[in-house]
């Protein structure tokens, strides 16, 4: 096995579907070395945790897996709120959705332009987490 295990300090998984969460966690096992993986059922919970971490000076997640359709606060609203937090650290956000609605893709391109973080768009189903999703640009080659 020559896959490089990437060391990641903290990962957020924000999704209300337990199966997807299970899948992401399982896939992460083989590519990332992370002690701190946090699961949230909706954007609100994730946002609250993120804001608290910023306030307390705790480490900000390096990678966020973000579902779009969620109750209470959806992926887009979470993105909006997160941009307002003005976090300076480098964050890779992977938007994960089963939606093939072109409107969602358009919305993503809009966010990509004004979001200070790396913003990937991934359609379900996902079979593998790419190095790119963890912020490794040329690590594997």
């Amino acid at each position: 096995m020559c896959i490089l295990m990437k060391k990641v300090s903290c990962i957020f998984i924000v999704d209300d579907d337990p199966i997807t969460v299970f899948g992401i966690k399982k896939m992460l096992k083989s590519v990332a070395d992370c002690e701190d993986i946090q699961i949230f059922q909706n954007g609100k919970e994730a946002y609250d945790a993120l804001a608290e971490r910023q306030n307390l000076g705790k480490p900000i997640p390096e990678v966020i897996f973000l579902d779009i359709n969620m109750p209470i606060m959806d992926g887009w609203d979470f993105l909006d709120e997160m941009i307002n937090l003005n976090i300076n650290e480098h964050v890779v956000i992977n938007m994960i959705t089963s939606s093939i609605d072109p409107l969602d893709y358009k919305k993503w391109s809009g966010f990509k332009d004004r979001c200070p973080y790396v913003l990937n768009f991934k359609n379900k189903p996902i079979f593998k987490i790419e190095p790119n999703d963890l912020g490794c640009i040329t690590a594997a080659s």
């Binding site: 579907d17 199966i19 997807t20 899948g23 089963s98 093939i100 379900k124 189903p125 996902i126 079979f127």
Partner: peptide, 11 residues
């Protein structure tokens, strides 16, 4: 429907 079928594929 896609989200379910995506889950099937993944699993």
């Amino acid at each position: 429907l896609r989200s379910h079928s995506a889950n099937f594929s993944m699993l």
